[in-house]
Amino acid sequence: MSGFQATAGHGDPHSLGHGAAREHLPKHGGGHLVSKRIVTGYGFWIFLLSDIIMFSAFFATYAVLVGATADGPSGHDLFDLRNVGVETACLLLSSFTCGIASIGAMTHRSLWFYGAMTATFVLGAAFVGLELREFAGMIAQGNGPSRSAFLSAFFTLVGCHGMHVSLGLLWLLTMMAQVYAKGYRDDILRRILCFSLFWHALDIIWVGLFTVVYLMGVGQ
């Protein structure tokens, strides 16, 4: 057993697992079989990177168009850093609670899992709510996406991230329902792994977003 673990940990170039996955790899096979969990996680990692590449195109569009305000308001006039700070805190804390939930799922602790997933949902929903309120306020003042190229790019970039978070919330509820109905099965746990990767990646994109859009926008 310990021999297996040593091979899996160091000698096997295919054991590209996340975190502690490698210690539990070779229940079957001689150490060169890659576990399905690792293959799934790696595939989802590739998807996430391509999603980030898509976001980079939106970031580039925004950065090119940030000065094209067509005599309309710029970020300096529109953005409220207090609101953005609360949004950032919500998303960062939800990333943390999502990590707690994945530990809870892997150790089969229902209280941790359901509690942390609920906290993640509440924080994520608060984020989406704050963002929708910000959008609604801007549109009500006549500063909707059709006002200027800058605002088109702003709503595309920030709205695309918000839509990812909203879809993530749906996925989160699905995972809670699946664990409730089917228990901590391997395939369910793989889906939870993918969900937590997705949620953490959204937080990484938000770091770039609040820096480039809001903090630099207010400074200009």
Binding site: G17, G19, A20, A21, E23, H24, L25, P26, K27, H28, G29, L33, V34, S35, K36, R37, I38, V39, T40, L92, L93, S95, F96, G99, I100, I103, M106, T107, Y184, D186, L189, R190
Partner: peptide, 22 residues
């Protein structure tokens, strides 16, 4: 379980990592 069985993470260590990250 298939080869892809779930890891039982050392949860104390995992929690510390998340706390440091936070």
């Amino acid at each position: 379980s298939a080869p892809g069985d779930e890891p039982v993470e050392d949860d104390a260590h995992g929690l510390v990592a998340y706390l440091v990250g936070l």
